[in-house]
Nucleic acid binder design. Structure first.
Lengths: 240, 240
DNA sequence: AAGTGGTCTAGACCACTGA
DNA sequence: CAGTGGTCTAGACCACTTG
């Protein structure tokens, strides 16, 4: 293959390789399952070293466009349009956090199950509401296993966000979270708290925090009042 | 620095570098904001070439543990525990898709707004329900702009999933999706369709498909009946 | 055996940062 | 200025796949 592109723009050579191949894929000239040109032919085309070409191919791999099979070649991936990335802000930006209470209590059956607690163990409950201006948009509950004699540092827990609370117990990278999203009708208590009518459909986000041994270290539940608080996610390619 | 680890396992050298540094981060010896050893000191420690060390550092970058700043060094990232990855299966596995109807119609104001349509333009509406055994768990609506004279290929659209429909109009990688999640109470029509009571809280997923010019090429809305259909997402590290 | 990708090296030059 | 990371090379050896 003859070289087809010059590096006029000051872009690194590997970035030119990326742009060239990504354009073929996004443009539909190369489709899922198709084989890409071999490393060696790209080396000729771009008059670059093999490692440079590989750097570009690695980038496309990271971005999800291609994958490689040793001994065979590089292939265009099946696009994953079912994977969505969400950013869940426990406290919305420009929202006020209204701390309600913090206490040590006996968990109800839901919380006990979520935290996988032994029979008699108590939990720390942290309750707050989130509001925008005068409108209450969410009601937030968090539960942590309570170790006997452990001091209860209200000041630290009041405004802390869930991952911070967990990070206090383990290293910042040593835990993961599972989230469940569902819908519930507001009962009397929720309706009073959120100042909505009984029966209003609420968006519910449950979070389970686990440490690296997969022990559950926290359970949280947030009731969100549409349309004031909803969730947004994104899926897609079109990078670069 | 002296070399600390031998490659006894047959692992590539760069993978040893990754394991070594990741253990420091997950173990809490290196914390967000901390500077990592320089490339050259890792070269000495592992008796590897600079490119090999860089390959390992690149891997940790991809995994979200570290980032680099030219002229300064590598640093431990702030963990992002707010980012969740969801897989939204339009049709659940082991579920039955019950095709309801497909028609060309005038959009109501919601659909017109979602598709950003000109005044008189018509849309294709595709309606189906999803059930598990005898239980209807979701009601699915999709809307596509209708171009005059365009043939309506029912057979192709009946069981197609949204990304497939979109891919027919553009290249497989040339579009992206935005998703909104909210909750709604079942009205009379939804209650009848989903065989639930009026007022039941439903989970609602809206999807907006856009091509690479950011033109909206499809709008979908799915009403999901908890607890039969909900959503699950994951956030976390602990890789490797 | 020929072609593919996977790992690794020893060196080069550059751009950027901070003392 | 010395030290950092960013790009790039020309070659080597290996493991894997296919004819």
């Amino acid at each position: 293959m003859k070289r087809v592109l010059k590096n006029q723009t000051g872009q690194p050579v590997y970035a030119v390789v990326v742009s060239y191949l990504r354009a073929l894929i996004v443009g539909g000239e190369l489709n899922p399952g198709d084989m890409l040109p071999s490393e060696n032919s790209l080396v000729s085309k771009f008059e670059a070293s093999r490692e440079t070409v590989r750097k570009g191919l690695k980038q496309l791999d990271i971005e999800g466009y291609i994958y490689s099979q040793q001994g065979k070649g590089y292939f265009v991936s099946q696009p994953k349009h079912d994977n969505f990335l969400f950013q869940f802000d426990e406290n919305l930006e420009n929202a006020n956090v209204n701390f309600k209470k913090i206490q040590i209590c006996n968990p109800d059956s839901e919380v006990k199950a979520a935290l996988k607690l032994a029979q008699k163990k108590k939990v720390i409950e942290i309750v707050k509401t989130i509001s925008i201006g005068a409108v209450i948009v969410a009601y937030d509950l968090k539960y942590l296993p309570y170790d006997k004699g452990q001091p209860l540092i209200e000041a630290e827990l009041q405004y802390a966000v869930f991952p911070q609370i967990a990070a206090a117990k383990t290293a910042p990278f040593a835990f993961s979270t599972k989230m469940e999203i569902t819908a519930e009708s507001a009962n009397q208590e929720l309706a009073t708290t959120l100042k909505c009518e009984v029966g209003t459909a609420l968006l519910v986000v449950k979070r389970y925090l686990s440490d690296k041994d997969c022990e559950i270290i926290g359970y949280g539940k947030q009731y969100m009042l549409p349309p004031f608080k909803e969730l947004e996610g994104y899926s897609g390619y079109l990078n670069g």
